[in-house]
Design a protein around this nucleic acid. Structure first.
Length: 507
RNA sequence: GGCCCGUUCGUCCAGCGGUUAGGACGCCAGAUUUUCAUUCUGGAAACAGGGGUUCGAUUCCCCUACGGGCUGCCA
């Protein structure tokens, strides 16, 4: 139990630049599980240092998403806590104080090169890197005299502050998932740590906040592994002890290459965001798992197993079971392809497990979308009959429209195979029996008795009744279906179908 | 290009020197069922390649190949 730590504090630190990606949800989940298991603290920190990429509503979306999954932060904006503020934009002054300490100690320096100049260098040389080999040829406080630097600073020119990386040193750290990872500082560039607008970059803000918020374990995506060397250097420069790092494998596209991205949802036909998102821009609309008919338990279970293994044969985990079973050592090293079929399978399982009344509540807005006005009681009935034959909530309606309106067409192939003119009369009689039946039980026995007395086989007439009532051969128990549709309504549907059947057969 | 990380069935995971290489999703077949679905049973399906180390490598080391990430005054 190497990572057990009763005082552990972990954070989920998303950037509010758009809806929270499903990979981000998994990162949040692992952090949450780790915190809960160790009786630690799960912190939400909003990393909004890039003012240009800030998207209104994104922060709220992040919070809403976490709430939907039940991953409730112990500290964070709107959640309280003694280490705030939890929005980096509100901590701006704090970072400056630290950055100037670095300047004073010669561990960072002013850089006056404009972004445009740097772009030009990169255009000319693909391998351009702002580092110790080249910095004396560029415009910064290391290449200029103190007077010159002072003059530029006093002129009010915008400047950045860069981290000064010392040459030829080996920076290594222990990653809980990957083991020892090392970098040679010769490969590292002098990262900008304070931008022209006075905001820190991720690297600076991140380590200052993690230190000040007493974060003990940094559990984040693998895309941060490369820059961890810079972070370790920063910790060293400040004389702080770095937290433990764990870099999670990425979630990859189901096919093809690269990590799963926001556009992949539309491309592959499944959601990549927890909740639906709409910014106003027509191109910036995405359906969420919730709106697409997934239940949060399923998404969590699926995500938990994408990159982590319980080392047992157990597949189904509630959030509490995950808390008990989770362990960082069992996180997988390699990237995991996103497989929507598996998510669908989990979803089906959790839908079947759900109480009908619960499902009815989720069904109501969907049914209204289709113009149906049925009460929760009725919808619970639909849920009861449909839940074990759907993968998504909405399919309880889209695959069973016959509970809400009479079918407007029939499965012709079956009719042609099963219908004969002699069956018209029995169908009419059955229609009568249905109307006169008191409840499902008597309905079923009445109809079955009639069928055997008429010397018909169940297989001769049942498919036709089913078709008459629902239009399709796929569906729940016929008698229960009839009962829910309504005895009178079902009887009418059967009467009305006879003519249609005759027409189909003569065509 | 450079650096870092990775590589077991189509996919997600087990395996941590000696196994008939295991489970799950998906797929196929069968049973049950008035249909569909659920459920149950069975089946096909993998250690990237090459060198070492070892009595013995899927397991340890190296190389190659492939995949991924980073390489921004984005996070």
């Amino acid at each position: 139990m190497s990572d057990q730590n009763s005082a552990c504090r972990v954070r989920f630190a998303p950037s509010p630049t758009g809806p929270l990606h499903i990979g981000g949800v998994r990162t949040a989940l692992y952090n949450y599980l780790f915190a809960r298991q160790n009786k630690g603290t799960f912190i939400l920190r909003i990393e909004d240092t890039d003012q240009t990429r800030l998207v209104p509503g994104a922060e709220q979306y992040i919070v809403d998403s976490l709430m939907w999954f039940g991953l409730i932060p112990d500290e964070g904006p709107g959640f309280g806590g003694n280490y705030g503020p939890y929005r980096q934009s509100e901590r701006k002054a704090l970072y400056k104080e630290y950055v100037y300490k670095l300047i004073d100690e010669g561990k960072a320096y002013y850089a006056f090169d404009t972004p445009e100049e740097l772009d030009k260098y990169r255009e000319q040389d693909q391998t351009f890197k702002y580092d110790g080999k080249i910095r004396l040829q560029l415009r910064n406080s290391l290449s200029m005299s103190a007077e010159e630097t002072q003059a530029i600073l006093e002129s009010g020119t915008e400047f950045a502050i860069r981290l000064k990386i010392e040459p030829s040193q080996i920076i290594s750290f222990e990653d809980s998932i990957r083991g020892q990872v090392s970098f040679n500082t010769d490969e590292l560039d002098d990262k900008v740590i304070l931008k022209g607008d006075g905001m820190p970059t991720y690297h600076l803000a991140n380590i200052i906040d993690d230190h000040l918020m007493e974060i003990t374990h940094v559990i984040r995506g693998e895309e941060w592994l490369s820059s961890t060397a810079h972070h370790v250097i920063l910790y060293n420069y400040f004389g702080w002890t770095p937290p433990k790092f764990a870099h999670l494998p990425l979630i990859l596209k189901p096919s093809g290459k690269g990590k799963l991205s926001k556009r992949d949802g539309a491309k592959f036909g499944f959601p990549v965001f927890p909740l639906s998102w709409e910014s106003g821009e027509p191109e910036d609309r995405f359906i969420g798992f919730r709106e697409d008919g997934y239940v949060h338990e399923a998404v969590i279970n699926f995500l938990a197993l994408l990159g982590w293994s319980p080392h047992s044969e157990q597949e189904m985990f509630s959030l509490n079971e995950l808390i008990a079973a989770f362990h960082i050592d069992n996180i997988v090293k390699s990237g995991a392809r996103f497989d929507i079929d598996k998510a669908l399978w989990f979803n089906q399982h959790y839908i079947i497990q759900s109480a009908n009344a619960e499902l009815a509540k989720k069904l109501q807005p969907i049914s209204e979308k289709y113009g149906y006005t049925k009460d929760l009681n009725f919808l619970a009935g639909v849920a009861g009959l449909m839940k074990e034959r759907v993968h998504k909530i909405d399919e309880m309606i889209t695959n069973a429209r016959y509970f809400f309106e009479a079918p407007d067409n029939y499965d012709n192939a079956v009719i042609k195979k099963k219908f004969r003119p002699e069956l018209a009369d029995p169908l009419r009689l059955i229609s009568d029996i249905i109307i006169k039946s008191a409840d499902v039980g008597t309905l079923e026995s009445n109809v079955k008795t009639f069928i055997s007395e008429t010397n018909l086989k169940l297989g001769d007439i049942m498919p036709l009744i089913r078709l008459a009532v629902s239009g399709t051969m796929q569906g729940p128990d016929l008698f229960q279906t009839i009962a829910l549709v309504g005895l009178d309504e079902s009887a009418h549907r059967i009467e009305n179908s006879i003519e249609a059947f005759e027409k189909i057969c003569s065509a």
